[in-house]
Nucleic acid binder design. Structure first.
Lengths: 329, 329
DNA sequence: TGCACAATTGTATACGTATGCACGGTAGAA
DNA sequence: TTCTACCGTGCATACGTATACAATTGTGCA
């Protein structure tokens, strides 16, 4: 391995000077700078990231915790995050939510293996997360929020989004609607459901208990719920799913059972790219996933650069996007 | 920050002993070991990853370069890789192929920021990749292969897979078939196309030039190709796409143009989970993506642990999975 | 009792880089 | 010319851990 000392020797300068060429912050004569750069080039010198991290207390690496890589929403968020951070010269470590991955992420902060972490899967239950926030670990929550945590959080207006779906359905005479949520401890699914159910109730068409489900966030479990609903013989006029990935499962179940699309409207949430594909043409509530990702990355970088900032919350508005899964030719 | 020295002081031992408790390799009396562990717990000690990396020359981190996170194939590979490696206590850095990400990955090896890299996007053009292989950098190619590189490579039998599609179509009387490839410099698309085109030719039904396309690997570009094909007025009996993600684009274009599914069969490659969804029901060539991912991870870890191993090649067989996009009720 | 030897633990140093401090030299001002 | 100021560079050290080697203690056996 070639070190800055080797470069120094070849260039006939001290190791300190080589280091200064690297950081390019201090003044150096153009001549020595050039000489050092030639030496670096000649030897193929690359600084050792671990050694740098030890001195500068910075790794130029951040972590991201995602819930489910097979859900295209997370793929899009990850896509945007990596583009944004790659461009900024920052490495991205990913944790895939199975089991205790959020603990691994927090541990990585303690180990100084990463400078900070973006959580897309936070829940109120995690005492470790709470403790990390209280220690002022650099972390940002995007997508799912936790009211009780004093840290940066980027969300969309889920309650309003859910309400918008209810209003839309009722405005089109769909009074008998079902809701399939993901899990109660995820703020996204909870808030979307709340906004929806409350508005349905307020406008005189409360959603009955047997039209409220937990679909577990996946395509297949949601299709399973839909099948149960269908076999119950009491088909709702519309189904609102907590996210698009689940809505695809609902659509698939309808197709598999040869239920015509006009007999049961399906609505999702997120507006992932696939929702616009002709095979789905899914009506959904668009949240600006990529913008949210960029915003979260920005907040984290700021916080890493300037510790001690007051916690910030960013809430992005959502729009209902109407497509073929609800209004048919 | 609490260091091993602090722990040593509290436990009344030397820093070296603390380090030994950490590595748990050397013999220690149960008493001191316990005392040190209590001290660690009390102080909340966590070793500094950078310092460890500097001494041990190992980061317990590996990199993965993926081509396109919106293609579910890469999501599945990444999903499997992260599960496998998380479980092994290894961090995963991801590079998203836009622009020069493979250069960043190679740089990260030089910086000792990662112990090795898994490439899913290798091409023969990259001189830097060639140079890295010659320097015996720990890296593994999965999915796309490069014949001329002497490094570990995990692939599937793409040529045979393409041939199987041709045989299947001809056996069902579909003699006028089109091929939509991704890009010539990707071994996957190239080999699948070769196997397909060659077999079609050998069996007396060569695919004419105007039925051969480059679809750019994405859903939208493939749909665009399909639209051009449709507007040409000469509809093939079947279209073979270089991967499932592209095939979904082809299916969508057919739907958007209200072409009945039986008028133009569509076949993909990969068998991503979505291919089995009722909305697509895509006939495709299954390659064992997750197994390939695990295999690649295993090869890389072996190579990191035991440098100097001879390059290995693993080739997984593929199966044609027939679904509704080709045989209709 | 005395000695060899094994089992533990401490001492000292190295990994590769960044940076505070001191030093030599040059230029401008008096 | 002499003094001041400043610029460019070298010297020395610190970051936090792992490990070769030395030192210590305790054990078994003659």
């Amino acid at each position: 391995m070639v070190t800055s000392r080797d470069v120094a020797e070849l260039a006939g300068v001290s190791q300190a000077t080589v280091s200064r060429v690297l950081s390019s912050s201090s003044k150096l004569s153009a001549a020595t700078k050039a000489r050092v750069q030639v030496a670096m080039e000649t030897l193929g010198y690359v600084p050792h990231a671990g050694a740098q991290a030890m001195k500068t207390r910075r790794t130029n690496t951040i972590g991201v915790v995602v819930a489910d890589l097979t859900n295209p929403f997370y793929s899009e968020v990850l896509d945007e995050l990596t583009r944004e951070l790659d461009a900024a010269g920052i490495r991205v470590v990913i944790w895939n939510a199975g089991g205790g991955s959020h603990l691994d992420a927090l541990k990585a902060i303690s180990e100084r293996a990463v400078d900070g972490v973006i959580f897309t899967t936070a829940t109120a239950e995690s005492l470790e997360l709470k403790a990390a926030v209280e220690k002022h670990s650099p972390l940002v929550l995007i997508n799912r929020a936790v009211e009780s945590l004093d840290c940066d959080q980027v969300t969309s207006t889920n309650i309003e989004g859910g309400a918008a779906v209810a209003n839309y359905l009722l405005d089109h005479g769909k009074t008998r609607a079902a809701f399939i949520g993901g899990a109660e401890n995820a703020s996204t699914s909870r808030d979307r459901g709340r906004g929806f159910l409350q508005t349905m109730g307020e406008r005189g068409h409360p959603v009955p208990e047997h039209f409220r489900f937990i679909g577990g966030f996946s395509h297949d479990t949601t299709a399973g719920v839909m099948n149960r609903l269908l076999s119950g013989g009491d088909l709702p006029q519309a189904v609102f799913c907590a996210n698009d990935h689940m809505a695809f499962g609902a659509l698939d179940a309808l197709r598999a059972n040869r239920i015509p699309a006009r007999d049961c409207w399906v609505i999702g949430y997120d507006d992932v790219e696939m929702a616009a594909w002709d095979s789905f043409s899914l009506t959904t509530v668009r949240q600006p996933s990529r913008e949210m990702a960029r915003s979260g990355a920005g907040l984290l970088l700021e916080r890493i650069h300037t510790p001690g900032l007051a916690p910030r919350r960013v809430d992005f508005p959502c729009d209902l996007i109407v497509r073929g899964s609800t209004e048919h030719a």
